[in-house]
């Protein structure tokens, strides 16, 4: 579904990604691990279309040139980025935002939009699966949410939008062990033959809960090593030093 060939990305004339290659097939879970500043967040930003990068290389998503698509078109076509730092949006009710988002995606795909009642039913079900307090959904989007609530809200959005490719950018950071478990359960529940995941993380901890099919090590803008889930353990023991 996703082929990345020789992907380079610059910001402010500084090259961050220096020729990255990666292929993700439907149903696969890939983890990208790497030290600070290796380009992990840049990769997730470039894939979801954030402006400000000078990008070269080929990124093919379901036989389409992904780099030519607008941010929202990528979302419509099933790409979802769970933010490392979800933004606080004052004055925007969380429920209204979720409904606007879901219906924008449905509309773009020629599907019937949900009315208020259908939406409420869906969101209640998804929230309870994630042990997410429904009352929070009537509050302003992420405003005053704890770190854990913000991350759960990202996973809630993911499970409502039902994307084909979910990119989780350091979703484990700032989570206590209980929240980590709930978030991981949410991700695991979304796993299917059609949906793929790209999990970006600093630590091996998250991968104990979400077992990846592949682990890649990103150092200095390139993938220097790929392997199975055992690679994560190896990194945990030896550190990134041994690979750079």
């Amino acid at each position: 579904m996703l082929q990345i060939k020789d992907l380079k990305a610059k910001i402010d004339n500084k090259e961050i990604l220096k020729g990255l290659n990666l292929e993700i097939k439907p149903g696969e879970v890939h983890a990208i691990m790497g030290p600070n500043g290796s380009g992990k967040s840049t990769l997730s930003n470039v894939l979801s279309g954030k402006k400000g990068y000078t990008v070269s290389g080929d990124v093919t998503y379901f036989n389409e040139n992904l780099l030519e698509l607008e941010i929202e078109e990528r979302a419509h076509k099933g790409i979802f980025l769970a933010f490392q730092y979800p933004l606080e949006i004052p004055g925007v009710n969380t429920n209204i935002f979720l409904k606007t988002s879901l219906n924008a995606v449905k509309k773009a795909n020629g599907e019937k939009e949900l009315d208020a009642i259908e939406f409420l039913k869906l969101v209640k079900k998804k929230a309870s699966e994630l042990k997410f307090d429904e009352n929070i959904l009537s509050r302003q989007l992420n405003v005053g949410f704890s770190g854990g609530e913000k991350k759960k809200n990202e996973i809630l959005q993911m499970s409502i939008l039902n994307p084909k490719l979910s990119i989780l950018d350091e979703t484990d950071s700032g989570l206590d062990i209980d929240a980590l478990k709930i978030v991981s359960d949410g991700v695991n529940a979304s796993r299917s033959k059609e949906s793929s995941f790209l999990i970006i993380t600093h630590y091996q901890r998250l991968l104990e809960y979400i077992k990846p099919d592949f682990v890649h090590v990103l150092i200095n803008g390139q993938i220097v090593k790929s392997g199975g889930s055992e690679l994560a353990l190896e990194l945990e023991n030896k550190g990134y030093e041994s690979l750079s």
Partner: peptide, 30 residues
Amino acid sequence: LDEDAIFYLMSRGLSNQQSKELLINGFLLD
């Protein structure tokens, strides 16, 4: 308007225009 906030909303499928309107209305709603 906060460009990162616009990116956040657009990454959820909202158009640029929709995102801006949501942020502006949110700003006024206060």
